[in-house]
Design a binder for these strands. Sequence first.
DNA 1: CTAGAAAATGAAAACGATTTTCAGAAGCTA
DNA 2: TAGCTTCTGAAAATCGTTTTCATTTTCTAG
Lengths: 144, 144
Amino acid sequence: MDPIKQFNEYVSRKGLKNTNQRMIILETFLASESHFSTEELYLKLREEYPKIGYATVHRTLKLFAECGIAAERNFGDGQTRFEPVHGEEHHDHLVCTSCGLIIEFEEPQIEKLQESVAATHQFTIENHRLELYGLCAACAAADQ
Amino acid sequence: MDPIKQFNEYVSRKGLKNTNQRMIILETFLASESHFSTEELYLKLREEYPKIGYATVHRTLKLFAECGIAAERNFGDGQTRFEPVHGEEHHDHLVCTSCGLIIEFEEPQIEKLQESVAATHQFTIENHRLELYGLCAACAAADQ
DNA sequence: CTAGAAAATGAAAACGATTTTCAGAAGCTA
DNA sequence: TAGCTTCTGAAAATCGTTTTCATTTTCTAG
């Protein structure tokens, strides 16, 4: 579903209000490359809309996560990042510890194995996180 | 290797000093079930050794991580946790989102698939994290 | 065994990211 | 359009973590 529509539906279902700021933040969030921290998105927005406050950006990102159009991620650098959710596909991440590059990947076989591990322990999986940390090709080459 | 020996060697190699507090913290850390946050370990220690400060517990846990007898983990509840490292085996975690239960598991096949994903992207893996979040058997049953 | 340099301790303050507060502004419903 | 509710932005509060600093402890060298 169109994320803007999805957001509007969520807002009206919850009795919330639709504001200019929220639309601006949503557009910027969707238009740009993923994995924004609150700080990064705030700084980007400020270039064009200097009146938008940090708290509003933060609250709005939380709201996006709540209504399912954003996912919260944490790659261990002490900052929470948000990425747009497209459809239902799930993906995990390769994170370059040198340059910070983030690559997304999908591997259904890993997901299957996760299910079997969970079953072994009578666990019901709700969600998971898998991150592979290391060096991207460029950084590995530069390392020589 | 014996963690206490390993710690002592690290300390003398780095020109650090061996103190009562560090030994007390190490013993308590090793003796108890894993996955302590600084706060939790501090509170536990305080029962018997009320003079030990929070900062000391924190610095000591960091030191354990540095010398390889503890691993830092983050399960998304905003607290860093430490667990004793036993030998070389690697493991991942099942985390119950209801009661907080943490189960460790190993799945070599998943590790292999991770390597192949990394290779596809010319990535060199240094480490990874895999956590499966959901309900343990008890909580799933209680949920009915 | 002891003096003295170096490191460790504990309490409190600083820190950085996130969250909350609050008064005024804006959105929505009747 | 009135009036209730939510939202906004700035600032303050919060939470976990880290640092500071005066004092104490460890340990080496004499």
